[in-house]
Amino acid sequence: MLEGKFEESSLMKKVVDAIKDSVKLCNFNCTEHGVTVQAVDDSRVLLISLLIGEASFEEYRCDRNITLGIDLESFNKIIKNGNSSDFLTLIAEDSPDNVLIIFEDKKKDRVSEYSLKLMDLDSDFLQIDDMEFDATITMPSSEFAKITRDLKTLSESLQIIVTKENVKFSSDGDFGTGNVVLKGFVDMDKPDESIKIDMARPINLTFGAKYIADIVKGTSLSESVTIKLADKSPALFEYKLPSGFLRFYLAPKFDE
């Protein structure tokens, strides 16, 4: 049996918001260590990998591994009904047909209970071995989201160029070009505002702007985002959770 209680429903709301536009159906795999999701978008370009660790829950028990096949659009309709500050509890039997979603306000004078029908989904797992990256950038997630939104207005592609000194985000469209250059710096007072650039080898990669626009829907999950890049390889975009992570792997575009 699964019983997981969050101190606030806001975490699950943000997680669903972050992934629902990339994938529609996915299995939530529940183990004694927490909840994991791995899912690939329909075009096989973007992969999400989610870990909500046991410590993200106020109370958590999962005696046996349980798979919850969830339609995220439906789940989102229910999850939006809770207030962000409500306790959120997920309950499922060992071989469940549905999952119970319970919201309680902190005064305990209102309890809302919903049941979501589960689906039997083919799990389509990709094996991701530990990848080696040539460059790692950590920066404020809100800044990355703004850069993505701004440059997406010019072009369907977003180029990321990393040199020793800086990282350049660039777009080249029909009516003009744009770029944003960031240098590394340390903000002692607000570490999350810092920009850290680690580069072993220079990087020049191009990505579909619409996929990166989906990735930055994870912005509310974390103050900072880490971007890991390797030549001619998928990039990794990571938002850290209090215990766990939301990772996006994005395949690059290549010159023909």
Partner: peptide, 14 residues
């Protein structure tokens, strides 16, 4: 011109 790569090219299916 650029073409979009697929993740399948990089990650082997189990």
């Amino acid at each position: 011109n650029v073409s979009q790569a697929s993740l399948i090219e990089f990650f082997l299916k189990n």
